[in-house]
Design a protein around this nucleic acid. Structure first.
Length: 293
DNA sequence: CCTATAGCCTGGACGC
DNA sequence: TGCGTCCAGGCTATAG
C-alpha cells in the first residue's frame, strides 16, 4: 500500500497523539506479521514514553524515552490508527463479522493532555513488520537505504552517478531502496511521466560513462520531488484500503496522470498519446509511449 | 558485483 | 450465486 507520501501522512496523523504519551499496555493478537514480533517486544515498549514519531523512507520510527527505536513497516496493507473515544471498540478498520480478524497489535497509552488513547495496527496481508533496536544498535533496515528523495541529495548529478553503468530499466533502479529510499510503484510511474522518461529505458543511457547526467535526465529530480510533495499535500493515495491515522482516505489517486490509466488519453497538454501498461520485474508500469522516451 | 524471479498472505474484481 | 483466476501500494531470499 503505502509509499513515502502515505507513510508521511500516517506519521503526521500519529505524532500529535503519540509524542509525549507513555505506553501503558501492549497487546499482540498473533505472534508474527511478516516476521515474528521481536522477543520481549511488548515488555520493551511498556513503561517507555514515545518521544518522537519519525519516518525514514517507508519506515515509521518511534523514538522511545530509553533511547531505543521502535520501527514499523506497513508492507502493502498495513495501517496504524488511534482511537481516543471508544476505547473498547477494537477497530472500525479491517473488522469483519468475526470481530478483529486483521487487527494484530494494540497499545494503550497515557497522553498528558489527551488522556488515554489506543493505538491499533491492522494488516490483512501481513506484509508489514515491527522491530525494536536498543540505543546505538546497528539497524539492518535503515543502514542500507539510499538518500531521501525529498532531501538535498537528490539532484541530477546524484542520479547520473546512480545510473552510471546500470543496464536495468530506469524503473527498476528507482524502485531500489538502496539507490533512493521511499519510492514505490505508483510514484515512480508518475514521476517518470512528468519527466518524459520511458520506464523501460536503460538507466545508463541517461548518464555518461563517467556518471554525468545526460539532458534527458535533468527533469527527473524535480519531477520526483513535485509528485511526492503533491501526494503528501493530498494526504496520500487510497487505492483499496489506505487510511490515515484518523481513518480518512487520501485523495492523490484522483491526480494520477498515468497510474492505472491504461488505454486512456495522456493528460500531458497536446500529447494525445494513449497510456500503455507493461510488466517489469513482475510489476505493472504505466506510461505514455508518445511523450515518454 | 549485478539482475531477475519466486515467495510471503489475503481480499477484491472479473469471467464463466 | 459460486468458483477459479488474476492482480495488488513492498521487501527478502535465492538463483543465474
Amino acid at each position: 500500500m503505502p509509499e513515502l507520501p502515505e507513510v508521511e501522512t500516517v506519521r503526521r496523523g500519529l505524532a500529535p497523539f503519540l509524542e509525549g504519551a507513555r505506553i501503558e499496555n501492549v497487546t499482540l493478537y498473533r505472534p508474527d506479521l511478516r516476521f515474528p514480533f521481536p522477543e520481549g517486544f511488548a515488555d520493551a515498549l511498556i513503561g517507555r514514553t514515545v518521544v518522537t514519531v519519525g519516518r525514514r523512507a517507508k519506515y515509521l520510527l518511534f523514538g522511545l524515552s530509553d533511547g531505543a527505536l521502535w520501527l514499523a513497516h506497513l508492507g502493502m496493507t498495513g495501517a496504524f490508527w488511534v482511537d481516543d473515544t471508544a476505547l473498547d471498540e477494537p477497530s472500525r478498520l479491517f473488522k469483519n463479522e468475526a470481530g478483529v480478524k486483521h487487527v494484530h497489535f494494540a497499545a494503550r497509552l497515557a497522553h498528558p493532555e489527551r488522556g488515554t488513547i489506543t493505538l491499533y495496527y491492522g494488516d490483512p496481508r501481513r506484509f508489514g513488520f515491527m522491530a525494536h533496536f536498543g540505543p546505538d544498535a546497528p539497524n539492518p533496515y535503515l543502514d542500507i537505504l539510499g538518500p531521501e528523495p525529498l532531501g538535498n541529495t537528490l539532484n541530477a548529478d546524484f542520479l547520473g552517478q546512480a545510473f552510471m553503468g546500470r543496464k536495468s530499466p530506469v524503473k527498476s533502479v528507482l524502485l531500489d531502496q538502496r539507490v533512493i529510499a521511499g519510492l514505490g510503484n505508483i510514484y515512480v510511474c508518475e514521476a517518470l511521466h512528468v519527466a518524459g522518461i520511458a520506464p523501460a529505458r536503460i538507466a545508463r543511457t541517461l548518464a555518461t560513462k563517467t556518471g554525468r547526467p545526460r539532458p534527458a535526465l535533468l527533469a527527473l529530480p524535480g519531477a520526483i520531488r513535485m509528485v511526492l510533495d503533491s501526494a503528501i499535500a493530498a494526504g496520500g493515495s487510497t487505492l483499496r484500503d489506505f487510511r490515515n491515522a484518523d481513518g480518512q482516505p487520501g485523495y492523490f489517486q484522483h491526480s494520477f496522470l498515468v497510474y492505472d490509466r491504461e488505454g486512456q488519453t495522456c493528460l500531458k497538454p497536446a500529447c494525445g498519446g494513449a497510456i500503455s501498461r507493461i510488466v517489469q520485474s513482475g510489476r505493472s508500469s504505466f506510461f505514455c509511449p508518445v511523450c515518454q522516451r
